[in-house]
């Protein structure tokens, strides 16, 4: 049952991401909801699954953002791997740590992607990608984590 709800939640996040991408001009919300799925998988699953899923979701992010497949795939894989290694040293019961964990890891992941985009593909260093998006995503992740029912469903601890 919990598993179904979890899958449903991920599907909802996926569609929410599509909606955000579709109405970004109106909503002016730069959030990466797919990253929350990567984060969950990194915490709950083993290295192999983490790396594979991070790559797949990273490709989806590539498709939604710049269209260059591999950029976010690469950065998400590295981040997911690192999260998988270090998450056990962080107290995820405290919401502020959840927020910081999401924001910092996403910022790190986006910096890697932005470096590739900047040096190889000539994109500018985007403040929205490195600062705003991690903060907003961290905030959303923290909100999701606030509800006890959600904690139960996600079974993070």
């Amino acid at each position: 049952m919990k598993n179904r709800i979890r899958v449903l939640l991920f599907v909802l996040l996926f569609f929410a991401q599509i909606i955000i991408n579709r109405y970004i001009n109106v909503l002016t919300l730069n959030i990466d909801l797919l990253y929350l799925i990567i984060l969950y998988i990194s915490i709950k699953k083993g290295v192999v699954k983490t790396v594979v899923f991070a790559s797949l979701i990273g490709w989806a992010t590539d498709y939604f953002t710049c269209g260059i497949i591999g950029v976010f795939g690469f950065s998400r894989v590295i981040t997911a791997f690192l999260i998988n290694e270090v998450f056990r040293y962080i107290d995820l019961r405290k919401n502020i740590f959840v927020f910081l964990f999401i924001a910092i890891s996403l910022a790190f992941s986006n910096i890697i992607a932005n470096i590739f985009l900047h040096f190889i593909f000539g994109y500018k260093i985007l403040l929205s990608l490195v600062v705003y998006q991690p903060l907003l995503t961290g905030f959303v992740g923290m909100i999701l984590n606030i509800f006890p029912k959600m904690k139960k469903v996600l079974n993070v601890y």
Binding site: V48, S55, G70, G73, F74, V77, I120
Partner: peptide, 14 residues
């Protein structure tokens, strides 16, 4: 696995 996936991504980028 990690290295392979990273290489795959780099290959796709390239």
């Amino acid at each position: 696995v990690l290295v392979l996936v990273l290489f795959l991504n780099l290959f796709l980028m390239s």
